[in-house]
Design a protein around this nucleic acid. Structure first.
Lengths: 187, 187, 187, 187
DNA sequence: GATGAATGAGTATTCATTCAT
DNA sequence: AATGAATGAATACTCATTCAT
C-alpha cells in the first residue's frame, strides 16, 4: 500500500506539480482515504522526502559503483553521464520531481537532500581532479567549476530530453562527451 | 505603484516561491491593500507573466544585438554566454523566477513564454550552425543538441552561481567557453 | 449620460441579474468610469430604485387612465390585462427586473415600491368590487383574492410569455379574459 | 449534519436570499465550520440544487399520484391546485426558494430543474387537454396557455399567501377553482 | 490497518464606495 | 462634469491534518 501510494503520487506530482496535487487527489487515484495516507506517511512533505531520498540514494550508489571501477577517468566520466541520462530516461517522473519540487522541502529534510546532492557533485569534482592529476584532463581546469558545467549540461536535459525522440540516451551521452572532451572548435 | 508591487513581488517570489507567496504577503510588504493589487494586475498569474515577459524580452533584445555584431561566431558565442551570466548576476531574482516558476503559468500565457524561450534557443542553434558552415566549429556537431548542451551549462548556473563569490561572471564565462571550445581532455 | 447609464444597466440587469452586474460592468459598457456613475447615482441600489420607480409610476398612470374611462368593468379589466401584457412585451427587461430584482431593495426604498405595487393591486380590487356591486361580476366573489388570482395569472407571464412567439399580447389577453370571465368548464 | 445544514440554509435563504447568505452565515447558524460544509456539499450551488431537486421531485410524485386517481378532470385539477397551495403552506420557505432563487442555478443543474418544472406544467396541460376531449372543459380552450394561466395564478400566491391568515389553503383553493371553472362574470 | 467526519487557517478574487484632483 | 487611484470588507472555496472509532 505504501508503495502504491508512492507510485501514484509520483505520477501525479509529475503531471500537476507537488503543491497542485492534494492528498485527496492521491488517495482518490488508488481508491483509498486520507486516513490511510496518514497511516503510512507522517506528512505530505515526508512523502516528497521519501521520493527524493530514494532517487538520490540510488544515484549515489550507482556513482559509487562507477567510480570504483578499474577504468580511465574519461571512461568513468562517460559512464556517469550515461547513467544520469539513463536515469532521466527510465525514471523521468522521479527525475523531474527531484529537480523541480525540491523547493517544497524545508528544514532538516532539505538539508539532508542538499547534502547528498552536494556529495554527488563532489564525486564528479573528485573524478575531474584525479583526471587532471594523472594527466587525462587539461591541467589548467578548475575542477569545481567544471563539475558544475558538466552537471548543468546533463541535468538540464530533464527539461527537453525525450527518451522516445530522435536520439537515444546513449547517443546524447556520446555527443555530450564529445563536446566535454574535445570542445566544439574546429581542430 | 505598479513598479513597486512588481519589485517587491520579485523579491518575495525569489525567497519563498510563487505559490508560497500570497497576495497578502505582497501588499503587506509595501503597506498597500489587496484592492490596490487588483487595480494594477488582473491576477496573480498576470503578475508572474509580466515578470517573465520582461525578462525574456530583454534577453531576446540583447541576443539580437549580439548576433548582429560584426564578429566571429566564437566571439558571439562568448558574448552570449557572458550576457546570460551577467543577467543571472544583475537580475538573479528574476532569473531564478524565470527558470523555477514557469510551471505556474498556463494556457496562452505559458505558450507565449515558451515560444520566446524557444526563439532564444534557436538563436543559439543558428549561431552554431553558421559556425559549422564557415568552418569555425567542428563539422560533425549536431547544432540542435549542442545548443541544449551549452544552454544547459549556462542556465543551470542560476542554481549555484554566486556573483559575490570566488569567481566573477566574466571569469565563469571564460572558463565555460574554454570547456565549450576546447574540451577538457589534455591535448 | 444619466439616461445612458440607466438604459445600459437595464440591459445588463436583465441578462446577468442585479447582483451579478458590477458597476464596473455598467460603466465599461458605455466607456465611462466609476466616478461618473457616482456623480449621477448615490448608490447602486438607488439606480435600481429609479428603474423600479419609473416602471411602477408609468403602470399606475396607465391604470388611472383606464379606470377613469367611461366603460364597463369588464372592458376596463380587459384593458388592464392587455396593458400589463403590452408592458411585458414592450418593456420586457424592465418588467423582468421589476419582478425579479425587488429583493435587492431594502429599507425605505423597498417600502415605497411595495406601497405602489399594493396601490396598483388595490386598483384592481376596487374595479372588481365595483363590478360586483353593479352586477357585472358574480356576487359571491372575494374581491381581494380575485385580484391576486388575476394579477398572478398576468404577472407570471413575464416568466414564459414571448412577444415574438405563437401568440401576440392581444391574443393572450383575449384568452386570459375568456378564462377569467367564463371559466374553463363546459357550459 | 447534512440535513441540519440543509434545514438552516433554507431558513436563511428564505430570509436573506441565496446570494446574500454566505457559507459563513450558514455554518455559524449551526456552530460548524466551513470545512464541514464542503465535506457535505461540493459547492453552494450544489446545496441550492439539492433543495430545488427535493422540492420538485416531491411535487412531481404528488402530481403523479393525483393524475392516476380514478376521478373527473375537474376533481383532479382541484386536487392539484390544493396540493400546490398546501405545499406553499407547509413548505413556504422551500417554495419561495424554488421560485425566487432559480436564477442562481446554471449549466446542467439549471437544465435539469427546468426540465422537471416543464414536466410538471405538461402534466397540467395534459389534464386540461383530456378534460377538453371528454367534454368536461370548453372545447375552444388553448390547453397550453390555460396551463400557464392556472399555474401563474397558483404559483404567484407564494408572494402573498399567508397560511396563518384570513383564508386557509383549502379555502383559497376553493375560490381559485371557482374562478377557474366558472369565471367571474355574473351568470 | 483503515475510515470518515470535522477542522481552521489560508487563498485568490470581487466590488461598492470614497475622494483628491 | 469626470477621472483614476485606492480601499477594505466580504466571498466561495481548498486542503493538510487530526482523531475517535
Amino acid at each position: 500500500m505504501k508503495a502504491k501510494i508512492t507510485e501514484h503520487s509520483i505520477r501525479l506530482f509529475e503531471q500537476k506539480g507537488f503543491t497542485e496535487t492534494s492528498i485527496q487527489d492521491i488517495v482518490d487515484s488508488i481508491g483509498a482515504t486520507k486516513g490511510t495516507f496518514y497511516y503510512y506517511f507522517s506528512s505530505k512533505e515526508q512523502l516528497l522526502m521519501d521520493i527524493h531520498m530514494d532517487y538520490i540514494t540510488k544515484l549515489l550508489e550507482k556513482q559509487k559503483a562507477i567510480l570504483s571501477e578499474n577504468a580511465s577517468c574519461k571512461a568513468k566520466l562517460h559512464a556517469l553521464v550515461l547513467m544520469l541520462l539513463e536515469s532521466i530516461k527510465t525514471e523521468k517522473a522521479k527525475a523531474l520531481i527531484f529537480f523541480r519540487e525540491i523547493k517544497n522541502l524545508s528544514g532538516e529534510k532539505l538539508e539532508l537532500i542538499l547534502q547528498k546532492r552536494e556529495a554527488f557533485r563532489l564525486g564528479v569534482e573528485k573524478l575531474i581532479r584525479e583526471g587532471i592529476e594523472i594527466g587525462e584532463f587539461a591541467e589548467h581546469l578548475d575542477a569545481n567549476l567544471t563539475s558544475f558545467a558538466i552537471l548543468g549540461m546533463v541535468n538540464w536535459s530533464y527539461q527537453w530530453f525525450n527518451p522516445e525522440g530522435r536520439k537515444s540516451a546513449a547517443e546524447v551521452a556520446e555527443l555530450f562527451m564529445d563536446i566535454v572532451l574535445h570542445g566544439i572548435e574546429k581542430a
